[in-house]
């Protein structure tokens, strides 16, 4: 029989403990004091060492600001281009190969090309923008296709103003796909943004710290920074989910007489 209930809290903890044990065993097997694979404890110690330093928070702020700027620009662009493509078939045809190309292009190739056009400091803005754009664009297009055509007919018959159509019919129709795409894109923008920084090496960035840890063979620091990136990505994805759901409730939930 297939279980339809989600895992309980203790089950999640047990799974986490299992994988930490696997990690610990693998690191101990490889040996060399964690040179090739740091233990969980070494990674946590490295993180504890980094956390109280001002440089750590400056790097987080530097990278987050740029990666999130790229994300925000891509969301705005994806909304505009998605709406435009749904309205004009020609624009959709024109954009389709471009979006497919961006989706298929490896981050490394794009970063190397982008380095020719922008300064290293702003590289993560461009890279996160270009990797998020096709995801949000596809989400908006799917959302528009999912919007209830019968409600749109009703709105036309009842002469609903554009603002009301947007708020009560288009937004609830588009939001599920749009939210999903934004949440997926939030994870992607961190991966692509930090990858760009590791190649472009802008000073004061997370990617630069990751690279320095690698060349100085500070494997625990590599793990600590990776953990930070994963946590930031998860936290911001969760924040995006909550924010978007709250926005949906606020925007689409109630009619003011």
């Amino acid at each position: 029989m297939i279980s339809t209930t989600g895992p309980k809290g203790w089950q999640r903890l047990a799974v986490l403990a299992f994988w930490l044990a696997v990690w610990q065993l693998a690191a101990m097997t490889l040996g060399h004091g964690g040179l090739f694979l740091a233990t969980p404890w070494q990674a946590l110690q490295a993180l504890a060492r980094l956390l109280p330093t001002a440089e750590f928070w400056q790097r987080i702020a530097f990278s987050a600001l740029r990666i999130l700027a790229g994300f925000a620009l891509a969301v705005a662009g994806g909304l505009l281009l998605g709406a435009g493509s749904a309205r004009w078939q020609g624009l959709r045809l024109l954009l389709e190969p471009l979006m497919q190309l961006i989706r298929a292009m490896p981050v490394a190739s794009f970063v190397i090309l982008a380095l020719l056009w922008v300064r290293g400091a702003n590289l993560s803005v461009v890279v996160s923008f270009t990797h998020v754009l096709p995801v949000v664009y596809a989400g908006v297009l799917a959302g528009i296709a999912d919007t209830d055509a019968q409600l749109l007919e009703m709105a036309r018959v009842y002469r609903l103003p554009l603002a009301a159509r947007l708020r009560y019919i288009w937004l609830p129709g588009i939001f599920p796909s749009f939210c999903e795409s934004c949440i997926a894109a939030m994870g992607m923008c961190w991966k692509s943004g930090v990858s760009a920084e590791v190649i472009g090496l802008p000073d004061h960035s997370v990617g630069d710290a990751l690279y320095r840890a690698k060349i100085t063979l500070s494997t625990p620091d590599v793990f600590a920074w990776t953990l930070v990136i994963v946590l930031l990505s998860a936290l911001l994805s969760a924040a995006a989910t909550r924010g978007l759901r709250a926005a949906k409730r606020r925007l689409c939930g109630e009619v003011r007489a």
Binding site: E153, M154, Y158, R159, L160, Y168, I169, P172, E254, V255
Partner: peptide
């Protein structure tokens, strides 16, 4: 001119209450 209709389907905005649906199209 300026029609109002009952369609074969109910076509109410599902997230709104009945009252909100009426006010929305009530002009």
């Amino acid at each position: 001119t300026t029609p109002a209709a009952v369609f074969q389907e109910d076509r109410l905005c599902p997230q709104l209450t009945a009252l909100d649906n009426l006010v929305l199209t009530g002009h």
